[in-house]
Nucleic acid binder design. Structure first.
Lengths: 351, 351
DNA sequence: TTGAAAGCGATACCAA
DNA sequence: TTGGTATCGCTTTCAA
């Protein structure tokens, strides 16, 4: 078995208190320090974190729970969170729940029973009573990216609504009227926010909302592909499309390639969070880029503050503006909408 | 604070032994059982896993450590491992090390000190003394996908070498001679194995190895893209290419699209692990598919067996054959190699 | 500066 | 079937 403090103490000829003190950075008498260091080295001693945690009820570990690993956004968030935590001497326990709120509850429980000191969570569902329960248990919880309804909790969000609103407004300014939105799951906070941004922009410009132009998907590449393929089969095609999620954007790109759609002449494309791909494809992708790293760092620092007992400004909801990756996939509208054609003066026969 | 066993015992009017017994599935006298159940419910009692672990030195948790989350292969593995472990009442602590063996050592340590019962590990480096150390500490370690040099350890691998060998052989059978390989990092076990498979196939068919046709990359989409772009600039172009990793395949696809290369007429493409994309692109991708889920399950079950004390067949190295996703991206070689042209009979003037 | 000892929240043995 | 209690490995108070 592994050596314990007692073994080290015996070997060094001191009491276990002395070992503990050394481990925790206290100063010992020179002679004792040497003896302790030797004993530790010789026995290959390492403190047992479980015992430490039990004693201090403090694990220097933060639980990180995301709906799925199959998302570049979540992965970037995880990486940034880990990095930030590490800087402060904390570790991360990472978990996913397959997008299922029930599984999320189970995993949350698993993490809490591992006595993490706090939790950073990208919530899966529209509501989240189990998160409220955790909050009531006084475990510091910081939500990232999404805010379930009726939950009073620290949260770090980006301005989904405004980002999409701005994207659609700029398309309208370029003369587009037939603007499609390929949206994520209706249950997801971000997807709803983005949908609202889309609707607000249209309403603001007096452009009627065409039901067929809004596609709800589960956010995967496959469904993004399918949605774009379907949009192109509409009797009246969109002249612009906003793919409101990373994977959806890839799906749209694949569909555009397959259908040989000319971008941006036939179709303007605005993507989401397509850092890696956007410069490799031709034309380069115009897209909304959420500053995930920034958000993740904010969340990590906030949860550490809460763990440290600083409840300043609770519940703090921070909203970070999105950025833009300028690309060539967006252009002036060159397509005359069928509606215009049909409402012509009548001087020319309709084809 | 949260309720402890003692609280429950007091409330139920029994000893803590009785509570412990109940928690661990023992049978109590009807009357006591009711009392205990009530007390537990009323206090919202949940056993403290830390204390359990300290006492039993047993956490029902397996550490899972991968080089990076930014890989569909690793993610699929993680998901399958989690699922399998869950079936057996185990949880997973998941971690990545950014492909850095030094960081891997740190994370391994972190996991071990969280007293995981065992570890499933996709090793990052070419050698791994720190893993050997863990093995010597009698912590069950099962390697997945890769086997560092000189490490005696349970491992679950796929037949990288044979898979690529078969791929290249079939390309040769279709008349290809100029076959390029876009390989992963030279340090990676799988990348080396695949390179060997490529070389064996060429040697077996008497096809000379052209140095320019072998591209070493870091395995990212960007480098796959770059490598394919470069290959197409060679004075003598390949007529077929094997992209020996998932992300590399995506990169190749992007390059092929950008350069407007006709697949398979101008270039046959064999990909790797491209489950999701391969059917969406046109032409559909021909690719080697490693049965990740199967491998991951095998690894999970093996580590649980080891945790259970069953050392049967140690060290067990299992090798699972790859599968194929048949696609349209591979065809007969239609390109006459320059070498042949130049060694023509001389009856026609060379252009 | 250091030692002795209590206790964190569980498990499990020995008696009863 | 149940209670009392030693114990897991550590932190930390109280005395020395």
């Amino acid at each position: 078995m592994a050596a314990t403090m007692k073994d080290v103490a015996r070997r060094a000829g001191v009491s276990i208190y002395t070992i503990s003190k050394y481990i925790n950075g206290g100063t010992l008498k020179e002679k004792n320090r040497i003896a302790v260091e030797n004993a530790i080295r010789e026995l290959g001693y390492r403190p047992n974190t479980i015992a430490q945690s039990l004693r201090t009820s403090y694990s220097r570990t933060i639980g990180v729970l995301v709906p799925t690993f199959h998302s570049a956004y979540n992965l970037a968030a995880i990486t940034a969170i880990e990095e930030t935590l590490e800087k402060f001497g904390y570790g991360a326990l990472i978990s996913d729940c397959g997008g299922d709120p029930a599984a999320e509850e189970g995993k949350l429980d698993f993490l809490l029973r591992k006595t993490v000191d706090g939790i950073i969570l990208i919530p899966a569902g529209r509501t989240a009573p189990h998160i409220a329960k955790a909050v009531r248990r006084n475990v510091p919880v910081v939500l990232l990216d999404r805010l379930p309804e009726g939950l009073e909790c620290d949260a770090v969000l980006s301005d989904n609504r405004d980002a999409v609103k701005a994207a659609v407004q700029s398309l309208i300014a370029l003369g587009h009227k037939n603007i499609a939105l390929i949206a994520g799951p209706e249950d997801a906070f971000t997807a709803r926010e983005r949908l609202y941004g889309y609707m607000e922009a249209l309403r603001g410009a007096g452009v009627p909302l065409v039901k067929d132009f809004v596609r709800h998907t589960n956010g995967t590449m496959e469904e993004g592909f399918r949605a774009m393929m379907d949009l192109w089969l509409l009797p009246e095609r969109p002249s612009a499309v906003v793919a409101a999620e990373n994977e959806l954007t890839t799906g749209v790109f694949l569909a555009v390639t397959k259908r040989r759609i000319f971008v941006p002449d036939e179709l303007s494309v605005v993507g989401f969070d397509t850092q890696a791909v956007s410069e490799l494809v031709r034309p380069t992708l115009h897209s909304v880029v959420q500053p995930v790293e920034k958000l993740a760092q904010t969340a990590a620092k906030l949860v550490l503050r809460r763990v440290g007992g600083d409840l300043n400004g609770y519940p703090r909801v921070s909203i970070t503006p999105s950025e833009w990756k300028i690309g060539e996939s967006v252009g002036r509208c060159l397509v005359v909408p069928a509606a215009t054609r049909m409402s012509g003066t009548g001087r020319f026969p309709r084809v």
